[in-house]
């Protein structure tokens, strides 16, 4: 086969491919509505599966996201432990008071005092005022 024949052969090949491509494109443009609708549904299904499998975080970010979460959790726990120490100090008098109240409630001897709380508070105020007047007298 000489060069001229080769060129003619290549031209024929090109013509065939070009005609085939044109017919194919024509058939693609003529795809019916039902097929297009099915393709659309298939595409949406594929995208939904992609969403579900990816969970919104690209795979290459997962180790970084995990590390960030672990660090954040560690910091929160560390700070939380500090706060609980402070809270314990602040809550100690309240706890002691609650234990005191409990002891008073459980002690039968003190029940009379609980019934006359107003009297005892008056006595306490009266004693305080007496002390203040003594101090004033001594100073004066």
């Amino acid at each position: 086969m000489n060069k001229h024949d080769e060129q003619a052969d290549a031209a024929k090949d090109e013509l065939l491919v070009s005609k085939a491509k044109s017919l194919f494109d024509d058939s693609v443009d003529s795809i019916d509505a039902a097929t297009q609708s099915r393709l659309n549904r298939a595409r949406q299904k594929a995208l939904a599966k992609s969403r579900r499998s990816g969970l919104g975080i690209p795979m290459q970010w997962l180790p970084a996201a995990g590390l960030a979460t672990a660090v954040a959790l560690a910091v929160v726990m560390w700070n939380g432990a500090g706060d609980s120490a402070i809270d314990a100090e602040m809550l100690q008098p309240i706890a002691t008071a609650q234990v005191g109240d409990f002891e008073i409630l459980m002690n039968d001897d003190s029940l009379d005092m609980l019934q006359d709380l107003e009297f005892y508070s008056w006595v306490e105020i009266d004693e305080a005022s007496d002390i203040e007047s003594d101090v004033d007298a001594n100073v004066g």
Binding site: L39, A42, K45, K49, P58
Partner: peptide
């Protein structure tokens, strides 16, 4: 075609 779409979306979207 639907299977190919799903596989591409699940495995090679990134």
């Amino acid at each position: 075609v639907q299977n190919a779409m799903i596989k591409l979306a699940q495995k090679y979207a990134d």
